[in-house]
Design a protein around this nucleic acid. Sequence first.
DNA 1: CAGTTGTGGATAGCAGCACTTTCTACTATC
DNA 2: GATAGTAGAAAGTGCTGCTATCCACAACTG
Lengths: 207, 207
Amino acid sequence: MRIAELSRRTGVPVPTIKYYLREGLLPAGELTSPNQARYGEAHLHRLRLVRAMVETGGLSIAAVRDVLGVLDDPDKSLHKAMGTVTAAVAPPNLDDSDEVAREQVREFLESRGWHCNPKSFAFKSLVSVLTTAREVGHHEFFRQLDTYAEVCLRLAEADLDYVLGAPNQDAALEGVVVGSVLGDAAVAAVRRLARRELSSRLTAPEC
Amino acid sequence: MRIAELSRRTGVPVPTIKYYLREGLLPAGELTSPNQARYGEAHLHRLRLVRAMVETGGLSIAAVRDVLGVLDDPDKSLHKAMGTVTAAVAPPNLDDSDEVAREQVREFLESRGWHCNPKSFAFKSLVSVLTTAREVGHHEFFRQLDTYAEVCLRLAEADLDYVLGAPNQDAALEGVVVGSVLGDAAVAAVRRLARRELSSRLTAPEC
DNA sequence: CAGTTGTGGATAGCAGCACTTTCTACTATC
DNA sequence: GATAGTAGAAAGTGCTGCTATCCACAACTG
C-alpha cells in the first residue's frame, strides 16, 4: 500500500507519518522507484503501536524510539526488554539522592525478599516518589508500600501470564511493551473507577 | 518570610515562584508595602505541593490549578474532590467513541456490581485504553480487567483508609490529591519492581 | 498526450508549554 | 548613598511534536 492508504487506515496524517519515518519510528518503505514506495502490514501495525505509545502511553518520540529498539533487537530477552521499557517509560531527571527515601526502599525490598539494583530506573523511580511524599509532609506514605507490593505482585503475575501466553517471541516482546504502556494506563483507570465506587458507597451506602 | 527564602527552602527559582503567583497556583503574599510582600508556612507547603504535582505527577500547570481549586473549594466533599482530581489527572482528548470497548467496560462494571456514569473521566479513560489495545491487535487484553479490578479495589481501600486517617477535612482532601497523584506514580514504580523481580526469578530461579 | 493527483525527500514554520530573562520602580539595609 | 532585595509585568527562550510548503518525478485519467 502507499502512504495515503497507511494514513487512511490509521487516521494518522500523511505529514506525521513522514515525520515518524524521518525520526526512525517507522522503517522506510520498499522503494519501487526513486519517489515511490510501498508499505506493508508490518508498517500498519508498527504505526498503530507508535500511536498507542504516544497517545495512550504519553511517551515522547525519543522514548518510543528506545522502546521500538527493544522489539527490533536481535538479542531479545524478556528481562532485558523489561529493563529498557522501564527506563523509557520513566520520566527523566528523577531525583534519587534522598538518603531517607533510599533507605525506606532498601528496607522495603528486603522485607519482601526482592532484589533490585539501586541503579535501576525501577529503584530510582520509587525513591523519587517517596522523596516527594516526604517533601509534602506525608511521612507515613511509605506505609502504603506493603499493600502496593502485594497488589503489584499479583499484577506482575498476570502480566507475565499474558506475555507467556503469546504464540511466539516477537508477540511476547510486544506483550511486554503493550503490558507496560497500556497496563499502567489501564490500572490507573480501573483504580479511578474503584475509588469512585468506594467513595460513592461511603456517601450513599444504600446503593 | 520573603520570596528569596521561599525559593531557598524549596529549591524553586524566584522567577518560577513569580510565574506560579501570576498563574494563580500560589495565593499572593501579604503586602507590607507596595513592593514588599511576606509569605507564610502555607505558601511554603502549597509550593511544595505544586512541585510534587508538576514533577512527580507530570501534571500541567492548568491541571494543577484545577486540582488546587478543589482544596480551596468551600463546598468540600471527598467524592466531588475525587472526581475533579480524576478529570485533572486524565489526559485531554481521549477517544471513547469505540462501541465495542464501551460495551466491554459496561459489562465489566456490571459483572463487578460497580456503578459509574459513562460520562465520567474514569469511564472514558478505561474505554480509551481498551480501544487502543484493540487497535494494536490485543483483543484479549480486556481479560486482564478482572485481575485489575480485584487489585484496584484493595488499592482503593488502602487509599481510603489513608485519607480517613487524616486529622481534619483539609488534610483529608490533600490526602486525596497526594494519594491520586503520588499513588499512581508509586504503584507504577512498585509494579516495575515486581515485574523485574518475577522475570529475574524466571531466568535465574536459584536466587 | 496534457493534466491531475500522489509521492519521496527535504526544509521551514508553527503552536503550546513551562519557564527564564529583562525591565522599571521602589524599599530596606549596610 | 551605594548595594541588595522585591513586586509586577512583559517579552524572550528552548523544547517538543507536529504541519506546511516546496520540488522533481511517477502514475494514472480522459
